[in-house]
Design a protein around this nucleic acid. Structure first.
Length: 884
RNA sequence: AGGCACGUAGCUCAGGGGGAGAGCGCCAUCCUGACGCGGUGGAUGUCCAGGGUUCAAAUCCCUGCGUGCCUACCA
């Protein structure tokens, strides 16, 4: 190799942009629709166009990129499909706020102009999060980037709507829905967040019409009484047996309403009687359906009282509450008020109190779809990892309610339904009709509503690939290999993609679903801007580099757990990046005269460390490959960390220094260089999915043949590297070295002092191993003389160490009887404890009878070794005139 | 109210029926020709509590306590 060097330290700011551009320029991210390679595909959970990258995105996309980069290197035709969703409410809100600054509302612009304005906003700001994903290193196929409002995806939306409608799986009707009075739209059940709030429980008397008394009801929302159309009691409630069917007079309104019986009513709560407001409460609405009750709509889209509310008309719901309470009090109807804590639904977008409201909306009938989606997971066509989330998925699928898909917004996919003004016919079509197929009239009016954003997101796995066209991409990449996402959108997205994929494509959208953790701060709290505890991923990248950041996320992601992240932790992995950098720098210095893989070293020139490190490499390749395949990213990351830092750097490089410095034969040096090169190169490749930038930077210097690490072949375990004997022998040598270092430290011998050591090995095999590895012991334990034999029984100036059946005697400057005695006794006490545990087992007849034979053998071997070690230490102690 | 998860070294967490692990921190030590963003050595644990299953439990089961999350129409 020619003389090559790396700069003093790795500089992420310089490398990251450079190599990302290089990859893009070389089209490495691009997947071919047709290829001989096996396909591997992932669709990105599309972030909102309004979004900016947060920790959750960073984790999610790091894991996807690790998987996709590994698979790409493993020779798959890999597609990572990127894009964003149009985020109906959020985006509309953003643009409305922008307009507000100009003193305008969307109504001033009108629908068409407003939508145009949103598109302008999207063009200008919609790419922000995409660019942030690039900063992370995401290797998405950007040529295929999609947006849920794209022409193609919009076509898919219409097509699906029409199909579902024709299959009677979409219907329109007047039902109670969650209404956000601020966003002015219906939202789905999932988009309501419940928060416990302190409120009051008002107890109100409703007099019987016949004047014979009264019934008491309790409510947390007194204003809704304006819309009451019944009072309900439990049919089994003896207290009210006789009043069922009686009428009461609704106070303030003076409407006559019946007392009905329904199982829904809890006898134990309050008075056991409950007021029924079908227009303002989902449960009451359901009861109204059961009992054919009148529905009096008392609230409008602004949360204000309608004309049906009589004198309260026009009042805001909370203003009205105050007035109603006062009037009830004045009329003598209010019995009591007690503080009461209850759940209040909030709009997940703007946190405004949700108002359950009866209105005309579109719904998807989900039961039939959910059935298939459940079955697919039961059958294992889609595997959820970790399996614990299956329960959550089933639970929701089994209790699913129809999905309200219409939104009273302007930004989104307009519902493909037209009404003929002539004959009133409802036309549902994929293409805008120009005349009514019923009466031929041309006065058609399209439905004003748009679809829930999640409706288009649910189609993402196939709409992004060109459906409804039967594209090559679909044939190659659907179903996708895996969906990687966080648990908080299992219901919103995963479940709905399953339903739509199965219905439309007749196949699951993904073979695996990997559910990862949520990122929290050091204290375990969910990060949020309002709490001020959020860490900006871009700041982290600027500060520590994308590689350190990605590696941290991977290393902390244990399956199913939360990830608590702190800068301290990231810094630790930045040090790891630095370690890799310096190990390479060292390697380059010692590979100057090495011809790469061109010259094969003679196996007989390989040292024990050479054989050992390659055998270890094999294990790490296996760990990393399996770790990524099984979504145990943390195991893969930790295995690499341990191997590179503690085995490669701490041991192998140290052991190889003399050979590399030319202190042995050129043949042996070549063998060491070869091992070093192979292990370093493979390590970089294994690291690449986790740390794409630094590994490319190093590759370009180390390999320097115009190739890129990101499309190099991912390492596979090599049979010829497998060497159990080398691993076993190295373990002994390493332990001998560690033991001598340990004695040095414990006996307070200065590090600079070269030691004299006598080794007593029990047999030929051990003796020759120690002889063969003598130079390693001399170097790494700083020993100047290593002799074989025994020490004199009276010699009190030796410290004794035992490694397996090998005994080590370290010559002390002068007899340190006290220090050595203490040291030996401490170690013996430790062994004694172990020995007690083992012998207790071996003396237990039940154990000997019932335990597995290999366990018994193992325990016996343990016993033998402890005993041997103990005896050796005891003997050493005897030299000091004391017996253990 | 139900469901799920978690409780392991000072901190953050892996592991998971047969010898308690990592990173950080801590203590001591070393400026050895890649790295002080480094090297070497060390200390520390009733593996939440109680019961059960088992030859063997930190690990499996039950109960309790604590923590977090999800779901839910008791007004």
């Amino acid at each position: 190799m020619a003389k090559k060097t790396l700069s003093k330290a790795y500089e992420p700011q310089i490398s990251e942009g450079k190599w990302y551009q290089y990859w893009v320029d070389h089209d490495f991210f691009h997947a071919e629709d047709k290829s001989d390679k096996k396909p591997f595909s992932i669709v990105i959970p599309p972030p909102n166009v309004t979004g900016i990258l947060h920790m959750g995105h960073a984790l999610n996309n790091s894991l996807q990129d690790i998987t996709i980069r590994a698979k790409r290197m493993q020779g798959y035709n890999t597609l990572w499909m990127p894009g964003t969703d149009h985020a109906g409410i959020a985006t509309q809100n953003v643009v409305e706020q922008e307009l507000a600054k100009e003193g305008l509302t969307r109504f001033d612009l009108g629908r068409e102009k407003f939508v145009e304005r949103v598109w302008q906003w999207r063009t200008k700001y919609g790419g922000v999060i995409i660019n942030q994903l690039k900063r992370l290193g995401s290797s998405c196929d950007w040529q295929r980037e999609r947006f849920t409002m794209d022409e193609g995806l919009s076509k898919a939306v219409r097509e699906v709507f029409v199909r579902l409608y024709n299959a009677n799986l979409i219907y329109q009707g007047d039902y109670i829905v969650n209404w956000c009075p601020r966003c002015h739209t219906a939202i789905s059940d999932l988009e309501v967040e419940y928060k416990e709030e302190g409120g009051f429980l008002w107890n109100i008397r409703y007099p019987y019409k016949d004047g014979t008394g009264e019934i008491v009801v309790a409510t947390t929302r007194p204003e809704t009484m304006l819309g009451d159309t019944a009072v309900a009691v439990n049919p089994a409630d003896a207290r009210y047996k006789d009043v069922i069917g009686k009428d009461v007079i609704l106070p303030l309104v003076n409407r006559v309403i019946p007392i009905i019986a329904d199982d829904y009513v809890t006898m134990e709560f309050g008075s056991g009687a409950v007021k029924i407001t079908p227009s303002s409460d989902p449960a009451d609405f359901a009861m109204a359906e059961r009992h054919n009750l009148e529905i009096v709509k008392i609230m409008d889209g602004n949360g204000a009282i309608t004309a049906a509310g009589g004198v309260y008309e026009g009042q805001d719901r909370y203003e009205c509450r105050k007035n109603v309470v006062e009037d009830l009090k004045a009329g003598g109807y209010l019995i009591s008020v007690e503080p009461y804590s209850h759940n209040v639904g909030k709009c997940y977008r703007c946190k405004t109190d949700i108002e359950p409201l009866v209105s005309r909306q579109w719904f998807v009938k989900v039961q039939p779809l959910a059935k298939a989606a459940t079955a697919a997971v039961v059958k294992g066509n889609t595997k959820i990892v970790p399996p614990m989330w299956e329960a959550t998925y089933y639970e929701w699928m089994n209790n699913i309610r129809d999905w309200c898909i219409s939104r009273q917004l302007w930004w989104g996919h307009r519902i493909p339904v037209w009404y003929c003004e002539g004959c009133g016919k409802v036309i549902v079509a994929t293409h805008d009709p120009d005349h009514c197929p019923g009466c031929n009239g041309t006065k058609l009016r399209q439905d004003e509503d748009v679809l829930d954003t999640w409706f288009s997101s649910a189609l993402w796995p196939f709409s992004t690939m060109g459906w409804p066209e039967q594209t090559e991409a679909l044939k190659t990449f659907y179903p996708t290999s895996v969906l990687i996402t966080a648990f908080d959108i299992i219901f919103f997205w995963v479940a709905r993609m399953m339903m739509m994929g199965l219905y439309i494509m007749d196949d699951v959208p993904f073979k695996d679903v990997y559910i990862h953790a949520l990122v929290r701060d050091e204290k375990g709290e969910k990060m949020s801007k309002s709490k001020g505890n959020s860490i900006d991923p871009l700041e982290i990248i600027d500060k520590f580099g994308a590689d350190a950041f990605r590696f941290t996320l991977a290393a902390l992601t244990a399956q199913g757990r939360d990830v608590r992240i702190s800068e301290e932790r990231i810094e630790g992995y930045k040090f790891f990046v630095n370690k890799i950098w310096n190990a390479t720098k060292f390697s380059l210095m010692n590979l100057e005269d090495y011809a790469g893989g061109a010259v094969q070293a003679n196996p007989s020139d390989e040292s024990l460390p050479d054989r050992w490190i390659k055998s270890r490499l094999n294990k790490v390749i296996d760990d990393v490959t399996k770790g990524i395949d099984e979504y145990r990213y943390n195991d893969a990351a930790m295995s690499l960390y341990q191997f590179i830092w503690h085995e490669l750097c701490d041991w192998y490089l140290e052991l190889s220094k003399p050979v590399l410095y030319g202190k042995e034969t050129p043949e042996k040096k070549l063998a060491a260089q070869h091992s070093l090169f192979v292990v370093l190169k493979s390590s970089l490749q294994l690291l690449h999915p986790f740390m794409p930038f630094v590994t490319e930077e190093i590759w370009q210097t180390l390999i320097d043949d115009g190739s890129s690490i990101m499309v190099s072949a991912f390492p596979k375990p090599e049979a010829q590297y497998e060497d159990e004997a080398a691993e076993r022998q190295m373990a002994i040598v390493m332990e001998v070295i560690t033991k001598i270092r340990n004695i040095r430290a414990e006996m307070g011998l200065p590090l600079a002092k070269k030691l004299k050591v006598v080794v007593s090995a029990p047999d030929e095999e051990m003796t020759s191993l120690i002889i063969a590895c003598k130079r390693y012991i001399l170097n790494l334990a700083n020993v100047e003389k290593l002799a074989f034999g025994e020490v004199n029984e009276e010699a009190k100036n030796y410290a004794t160490g035992v490694v397996g059946s090998i005994r080590l005697f370290v010559l002390l400057e002068e007899a340190d009887v006290v220090g050595e005695k203490a040291r030996l006794e401490k170690e013996m006490a430790k062994i004694d404890k172990e020995l007690a545990v083992v012998s207790k087992k071996l003396e237990n007849p039940s154990f000997m009878e019932k335990a597995a034979p290999d366990v018994i053998r193992k325990e016996e071997e343990k016993y033998r070794q402890f005993k041997e070690k103990y005896a050796a230490l005891e003997e050493a102690l005897k030299r000091f005139g004391i017996t253990g």
